[in-house]
Simulated scan of single mutants.
Amino acid sequence: MEGLNRMANSIDFIENNVENELKIDQVATVACMSKFHYQRMFSMLTGVTVAEYIRRRRLTLAAQELTHANRKVIDVALKYGYETPESFSKAFRKIHGISPSAVRQNSQQLKAFPKLSFQIQLKGDVEMEYKIVEKDAFQVVGKGIRTSIVNGENHRQIPAFWDESNSNGFVEELEKDCGPMSIMGACMEFDATQEKLTYFICAEKNKQDIPSDWEEKKIPASTWAVFESVGAMPDAIPKTWDRIFSEWFPSTGYEHASGPELEVYSTEGDTTSEDYRCEIWIPIVKK
């Protein structure tokens, strides 16, 4: 509950400063989170990025001012952070479908994006089971892609990367000498500014020589929260991710430790079966 209260405080901060220059790290500080963790949490809870939410709120308020107040377009544009009427008009048209100057014409349809609020949804007896694991640092080897969390790009590119890696024999090669954690997908090398991350299909390093087109990366020692995901791939695991960020983090005394996140896949069982089981490992710290 405390986590949701802090998210609500961050929304109040955005509302109170929507006419000022807003930096996401300032908003994250209000929520007592790192910038990247706040962005992930916000996106999981709302379905939009922090930057997009701020943009929508500004353009909602701008439309109201243009409709009900005798304000020049340039004045409203500057008030809500746009340096030129052209940039303001482009953003305004993208949201509302009309130009700012057309707002005062009769019967114009506009869109309003209200202030967000957060609450915990009670979902009967659908509890989330987890365990806390301490693990030393270890090396992994594999291949990765660079992807973005903006507009759910990662949810499209990562399954496509798995399909390619399974079809070209790469995963099969990894399985031949994988460690006790089996095959993993690691989210790492987060770039909070550009909202990008590396997704690395890998296994624990068990031999010195690796193929020239593979990379080696280090997973640091961490305290991990481990969650089981049950269901057919690739649909089951995104649902577990959503519940971790929207339900587990807001209602527990833990927060993200900003290290790599792991998806741990068993080589046993049919990945298309509704009974297939895998795990999500997230580095945590106690608040």
Rank of each mutant, 00 (worst) to 15 (best):
E2M: 12
L4I: 04
R6T: 07
S10N: 03
S10K: 00
D12F: 06
N16Y: 06
N16W: 08
N17Q: 08
N17R: 10
V18W: 05
V18C: 00
E19K: 13
E21D: 09
D25P: 00
Q26T: 11
Q26R: 07
V27K: 01
T29P: 01
M33P: 00
S34Q: 03
K35A: 09
R40E: 12
S43F: 06
M44R: 08
L45S: 10
L45D: 04
G47Y: 08
V48K: 01
A51R: 06
A51S: 15
Y53K: 03
R55K: 14
R55Y: 03
R57I: 00
R57E: 01
R58W: 06
R58P: 10
A62L: 03
A63S: 09
Q64H: 13
E65T: 01
L66Y: 05
T67R: 11
A69C: 13
A69Y: 12
K72P: 00
V73Q: 07
Y80K: 04
G81C: 07
E83V: 05
T84Q: 05
S87M: 06
K90H: 14
K90F: 11
F92E: 04
F92P: 06
R93C: 10
I98W: 03
S99Y: 09
S101A: 09
A102M: 12
V103F: 00
R104E: 12
Q105P: 00
Q105S: 10
S107G: 00
L110Y: 11
L110K: 08
A112S: 14
F113E: 13
P114C: 07
K115D: 02
L116D: 01
L116Y: 06
S117K: 13
S117G: 01
I120S: 10
K123F: 04
V126I: 12
K131D: 10
E134I: 13
A137T: 07
F138Q: 08
Q139M: 14
V141K: 03
G142T: 02
G152E: 11
G152I: 15
N154W: 12
R156V: 15
R156F: 15
W162V: 03
W162G: 00
S165W: 02
S167W: 01
N168Y: 12
E173R: 05
E173G: 00
C178P: 01
P180R: 02
P180M: 02
M181N: 10
S182C: 13
I183Y: 02
G185S: 08
A186F: 08
C187N: 10
E189S: 10
D191F: 12
T193I: 13
Q194T: 12
E195D: 08
K196H: 06
K196T: 14
T198R: 09
C202Q: 04
C202W: 01
N206C: 09
P211H: 04
P211R: 03
T223E: 13
W224P: 02
V226M: 12
V226H: 08
E228G: 00
V230N: 09
V230M: 13
M233L: 15
A236K: 07
I237F: 08
I237K: 01
I237M: 09
D242K: 12
D242P: 02
R243W: 06
F245N: 09
E247N: 04
E247K: 09
E247Y: 13
P250T: 06
Y254H: 14
Y254F: 15
H256M: 14
E261G: 01
E263K: 02
E263V: 08
V264G: 06
V264M: 14
V264P: 13
E268D: 15
T271A: 14
P283W: 15
P283G: 15
I284Y: 09
